[in-house]
Simulated scan of single mutants.
Amino acid sequence: MKNKYVFDQTFQNLSQKHMSFEQVFRYIVQFMEKDPTGSFKLMFGTDSQVHATHTKFITGIVIQQERKGVWACFRKVIVPRKMKNLHERISFETTLTEEVVSMFNKEEKDRLFHIVLPHILKGASFSIEGHIDIGSGKRNKTSIFVKEMISRMNSIGLEAKIKPYSFVASSYANRFTK
């Protein structure tokens, strides 16, 4: 039986290909340890693009130190059909984000929190966000899915962000779906 989806279990960015999750986690730790007094956001988001014979999904991971820089990578999933149903596509984007977030187990999340913990009184902070490529505007076709997708992000412990604040999904991941 042929695989229904093509999951690339590795991550990449503009300078590296075929990174394992363990490598990605090490890069995030190194990024945060450079200046543990910073304000950090670990953000996840997925976007998709329907092509002639398939639908491409890109899930981004971005660690940002406010006003200091970012490190980012992404994972690609190909569905070998045109996924035209908007709810199905948005729901699958959210599922792929949830899957990547689930790679960060409790010990790994605790390790990231403990990098900044000794520096909280100096202004250090750490938060985790789930970026969803949907908007709540009246003219936005995805607005009917906002409550559902925000609830899904919140249920796994993420602060949900939608357009125009969901740049990991709507900007970073979007660049690689073309």
Rank of each mutant, 00 (worst) to 15 (best):
K2C: 02
N3R: 13
K4Q: 10
Y5K: 14
Y5H: 05
Q9H: 15
T10S: 12
F11W: 05
Q16G: 08
M19S: 11
S20D: 11
F21C: 08
F21Q: 04
F21D: 07
F25E: 08
R26Y: 06
R26H: 10
Y27T: 13
V29L: 06
V29G: 02
F31R: 04
M32P: 01
M32K: 02
E33N: 06
E33S: 08
K34V: 09
K34G: 10
S39W: 00
F40V: 12
K41H: 04
L42F: 10
M43R: 15
M43P: 12
T46Y: 02
D47E: 08
S48G: 02
V50Y: 04
T53L: 10
K56F: 00
I58D: 08
I58V: 15
I61D: 00
Q65N: 13
G69W: 15
V70N: 15
C73E: 07
C73Q: 03
F74P: 00
R75C: 01
R75W: 01
I78G: 00
I78D: 03
V79K: 05
R81P: 01
R81Y: 14
R81C: 13
N85C: 07
H87W: 08
H87A: 10
S91Y: 10
F92H: 09
T95Y: 11
T97W: 02
E98T: 08
E98K: 09
E99P: 01
V100F: 09
V100P: 09
M103V: 06
N105K: 10
E108R: 14
V116E: 04
L121P: 00
G123F: 09
A124R: 02
S125R: 07
S127W: 03
S127F: 01
I128C: 15
I132G: 02
I134C: 13
G135P: 00
S136R: 13
G137L: 14
K138Q: 08
R139G: 06
R139L: 12
S143W: 00
S143V: 01
F145C: 01
F145M: 10
K147W: 07
M149V: 07
I150R: 01
R152H: 09
R152F: 03
N154R: 11
I156V: 10
I156M: 11
E159Q: 12
I162R: 01
I162C: 00
I162D: 02
F167E: 10
F167T: 15
V168H: 09
A169E: 02
S171K: 07
Y172P: 07
R175W: 09
